[in-house]
Amino acid sequence: MPVETREISVIGKEDCGIVDITEIVSEELRQSKIRNGTVTIFCIGSTGAITTVEFEPNLSKDVSETLDRLIPLDKDYHHHKTWGDYNGGSHLRALLIGPSLTVPFVERSLTLGTWQQIVYINFDRIEKVRRIMLQVLGEF
């Protein structure tokens, strides 16, 4: 089965910076030789995540506020003793959401719902430029 590997870069603001990458992924699929299959979107780094959400400002606030209640960033996590970078909560948030997502596509078009976008979330305490790998698998 044919495989294409592509890489994109995304800038995410600190502390739950959510970036809609749907159009970037769609453009990569349009340029692909593979017409039907799946694309896996994988965030390289342990304080970032990939998921789907209805990308709109108020829901982005809800995501951030919910994660603040579940995994507060100002807590003294054991991880802070290791590197002194105070991003233990960032790692836990990324672990909860996960680093990757696989989405089917047909005729080079993602099969997403009307209000469903692919997003990268930066949970680190600083703004990050993040490498994201796309692995396109399918048929010509």
Rank of each mutant, 00 (worst) to 15 (best):
E28C: 10
K61D: 13
P104H: 03
N122A: 11
P99V: 02
C16I: 04
H78T: 09
I11D: 13
T47V: 13
G138Y: 08
P99S: 13
W83R: 13
S46W: 07
G17Y: 00
F123D: 05
R131A: 15
K61P: 04
W83F: 14
H91P: 08
H79Q: 11
R6C: 13
D68T: 11
S26I: 02
R35W: 01
L137G: 04
L134G: 08
T22S: 15
F42K: 02
E54C: 08
S90K: 07
V19L: 09
H80R: 15
S9W: 14
T22L: 12
V19K: 10
L134M: 07
I97N: 00
R130Y: 04
Y77C: 01
L96C: 05
S46D: 13
E7A: 13
V53Y: 09
G17E: 01
V19T: 14
V10P: 12
E127F: 00
K128H: 11
L134F: 03
I121Y: 01
Y86R: 15
E14Y: 00
E107C: 11
S32W: 01
T51F: 01
I50T: 09
I126L: 10
L101F: 02
Y86Q: 15
N36W: 00
L59Y: 09
T111A: 13
S26W: 06
I8P: 12
L29H: 05
D62T: 10
D20N: 15
L29D: 05
D124K: 00
P72I: 07
V25R: 03
V103C: 06
I118R: 02
D124W: 00
T111M: 15
M1N: 07
E7W: 06
R30A: 06
L101S: 02
L67S: 01
S32V: 09
L92H: 05
T40F: 03
V3T: 10
N122K: 05
R131T: 13
E107M: 10
E65H: 06
R6D: 14
R6V: 09
G98S: 04
G37L: 01
T5N: 10
L29F: 04
V39R: 02
V39H: 09
Q116S: 08
T38R: 00
V3R: 07
I126E: 15
I11F: 11
T38V: 07
G48C: 06
K81V: 05
M133E: 15
V53P: 05
F42T: 06
E14L: 03
H80D: 15
I11R: 13
E23A: 13
C16Y: 00
T5S: 08
L67R: 03
S100T: 02
Y120E: 01
Q116V: 13
R130W: 04
S90D: 07
T111L: 15
I8M: 12
L92W: 05
D68G: 07
E27K: 14
I97A: 00
I44V: 14
D76F: 04
G37E: 02
K75F: 15
I34F: 10
S64K: 12
L29N: 06
N36H: 06
E7Q: 14
F42E: 01
F105P: 12
G48P: 01
V106R: 14
G113N: 11
R30D: 06
E127N: 06
S26D: 09
S32N: 05
R30L: 09
I34V: 11
L29P: 11
L112K: 06
I34H: 12
